[in-house]
Design a protein around this nucleic acid. Sequence first.
DNA 1: TACCTGAAGTGATGGCGATCACTCAGCCGT
DNA 2: ACGGCTGAGTGATCGCCATCACTTCAGGTA
Lengths: 231, 231
Amino acid sequence: MATNVVDRLHKDLDKTIGNLPPAIAEAVEQAALTTTYPTGAVLFAEAQIQRGVFIVRRGRVKLSVCGSDGKTLILRMVELGGMLGVASAISGRPYEATAETQEPSEISFLRQNDLLRLMRQHGEIALWVTQQVSRDYSWTCREIRDLMLSDSASEKLARLLVGWLDNNAESRQTGHLKMALTHEEIGQMIGTSRETVSRLFAGFKKQNLIQQNGATLVISNRVALESLITA
Amino acid sequence: MATNVVDRLHKDLDKTIGNLPPAIAEAVEQAALTTTYPTGAVLFAEAQIQRGVFIVRRGRVKLSVCGSDGKTLILRMVELGGMLGVASAISGRPYEATAETQEPSEISFLRQNDLLRLMRQHGEIALWVTQQVSRDYSWTCREIRDLMLSDSASEKLARLLVGWLDNNAESRQTGHLKMALTHEEIGQMIGTSRETVSRLFAGFKKQNLIQQNGATLVISNRVALESLITA
DNA sequence: TACCTGAAGTGATGGCGATCACTCAGCCGT
DNA sequence: ACGGCTGAGTGATCGCCATCACTTCAGGTA
């Protein structure tokens, strides 16, 4: 249980597993299998029987659900340290969404058995896992609320942009954003068509709410953008 | 840890706490405070700081979120044995929804501290709680998917009705449903206006998909109703 | 009985955004 | 430099549904 020097000689990826104490992170590390995936790799698909959980060590993973008519709704992007498929692994039910890498990524996989064993052995791990699921749950509640209770598409887009700004400290200061998503994907995040996203961006530019230089988006008038929310 | 006769002399409410072993259910029972609420009582409100979790022992509780413009979206109805506010108690964040009794109900309350202590003491409780959150999460994912990826309102209503049918065995046989919700509330469940719900019901009746006798709804043509889903 | 309140039908109207059908701008590989 | 391909911009059309403004109905109360 004590962390000795030999254990610490491992690569320092283990620091990225939640905020777990090193000794416990090490236990997870030993049970997990870490793999590198290319862009577009599908870690698991909606309705597929559950095998275990995935932990993002590097890269970005898109989590989405899809309707039978082919339409897609992106639930969220999962980044460094995020877990995928936890709820399914705990409840034993099929995955409720599809996970697909957005860029070359390094992902640790932990089988359900090992997860449950670790949770049973280390109370801290159990608590940490439960907190992950709880976070996912609150996030999804916010999501459903924002999507359903704001029927104007511009409001949803404004929410998305402001949310992106607040996601990291420097964006909040400078108002600069790196656009990593296509208009189509943005549409899938806010539940509108690609064309509507195009038109909304055009409108925002016309009102001088935003500017665009290549792949960089500049929020020039954040307050006006926020005033669109709950208009 | 063993269940002795004295423990079992308690009222048999404890059987309703999940599928926990009696001894453990008893531990929960001792830490919890059970109260009777009238219809319309608010157990907790959205964005309120979290205090603990609620367990439904009798009655029905409406869980909803609301937008700033006053519009409401009902997430789900929680019945016997269901827990409320678990994710918030675990993560320590404010409640993400509002819980309001729909009928006179008996509710057990468990403070956050006691919940966490019990989870730490009994691995089974920790696992059970985690499973609850996981269930809530999958449910919410299904919800968001069904609501967003089916833009016709009739499809959403059809989904709701079929879901109600499958909720209990006899409804599935007879096709009979007791309507416990107003059209307005149904609208809040599927994200449409009250008027649209009225018109949809009228349409369904005209097509002989359903009939209505007072508060009893009869699904006369379930297959046709299902064919509206993913049309 | 007449009244009152909350739920449920229903018509008319208007707007927002999905959809179709293009064109246009990059970007890649050969 | 040339096709080919994917993402982006834009116009035209149109259907669904929110909204407003009523009426109708049922249940409870004085």
